[in-house]
């Protein structure tokens, strides 16, 4: 009965999607100063799949992610995570920020950074126990960094730093993973390691959302795409939404038609 009602009424269907989706964004506008970086964007992330957020430089990709996490305050709009307000669901979200967002000369070791992922389990005063160490080491193992546990983070290469950030997110044991340009400026070995971990997460039924810049790998890596250029341009399964038309609409003159034909391979 409810189903038939929903299908008759578009609004109801929309709200129902909002209830179930790992990440549902409605009418989100974010602005730095008086110029919106993201304008009135709706997004509904499909559970248990991998979604790429793509768009040209300055299109608001990272801003969308940060607003979804409450790091940047929105001007308007709302965000729901697994059907509830963001603040009730913090434990179920893991965030991997851009590598350049921190000072890598900070006095901390690889294992200490991963341990920050266990912040909730540890609480304010809880002692770090063997079980916590084991979780942290397992997470480092999953990203292929166990031999670097005791290193100061400044001694790592860019790709290794990115993997440490991913390990910290894994330690949270979250259901929804949001990554900001994890493949930017990393070596091929790291890219392979990261995509392997993300696919393993998907196999476990977790949801993964990635701000992505490399159009050539979209079809290989992701199930869904979300194209943005301040406004939403297209959203859906890669086969339907990652089309020459939507790329043209998102990138405008920045991509020549010939380039687009190279990027979008027929399925």
């Amino acid at each position: 009965m409810q189903l038939s009602l929903a299908s008759q009424n578009g609004q109801t269907a929309r709200e129902e999607g909002l209830d179930q989706s790992p990440l549902a964004i409605r009418g989100l506008t974010v602005s730095y100063g008086e110029k919106p970086a993201v304008f009135s964007v709706d997004m509904t992330v499909v559970p248990g799949q991998m979604t790429a957020i793509i768009g040209p430089n300055g299109a608001g990709k990272s801003t969308l992610l940060k607003a979804a996490l409450g790091i940047v305050p929105p001007v308007s709009g709302r965000v729901q995570v697994f059907g509830r307000p963001l603040d009730h669901q913090r434990a179920r979200i893991a965030y991997v920020p851009q590598r350049a967002s921190v000072d890598w000369d900070f006095p901390t070791r690889v294992i200490d950074v991963v341990m920050m992922g266990l912040y909730r389990e540890l609480g304010l005063l809880g002692r770090i126990r063997g079980t916590h160490h084991k979780i942290a080491r397992d997470c480092l193992e999953r990203v292929g960094m166990s031999e670097f546990a005791e290193r100061q983070i400044g001694q790592l290469s860019g790709g290794q730093q990115q993997r440490v950030f991913l390990a910290r997110a894994l330690a949270q044991g979250a259901d929804l993973y949001l990554l900001d340009e994890p493949f930017a400026g990393v070596d091929a070995a790291t890219e392979k390691a990261i995509i392997g971990v993300l696919k393993a997460l998907r196999a476990e039924g977790k949801t993964v959302v990635v701000v992505h810049h490399d159009l050539a790998t979209v079809q290989d890596y992701f199930d869904n795409v979300f194209l943005i250029n301040t406004r939403k341009v297209a959203e859906g399964a890669v086969a339907e939404a990652f089309t020459p038309e939507s790329l043209q609409a998102a990138y405008g003159g920045r991509l020549a038609t010939a380039q687009i034909e190279q990027i979008v391979r027929p399925a």
Binding site: K66, L69, G70, I71, D87, R90, I93, Y95, P97, S101, V102, D103, F106, T108, V113, M116, Y119, R120, R168, L178
Partner: peptide
């Protein structure tokens, strides 16, 4: 305080 000093964005994302 250490988390905020090292990575304020991550700290904010954790609530």
């Amino acid at each position: 305080m250490t988390m905020v000093a090292f990575d304020p964005e991550y700290a904010a994302a954790r609530g």
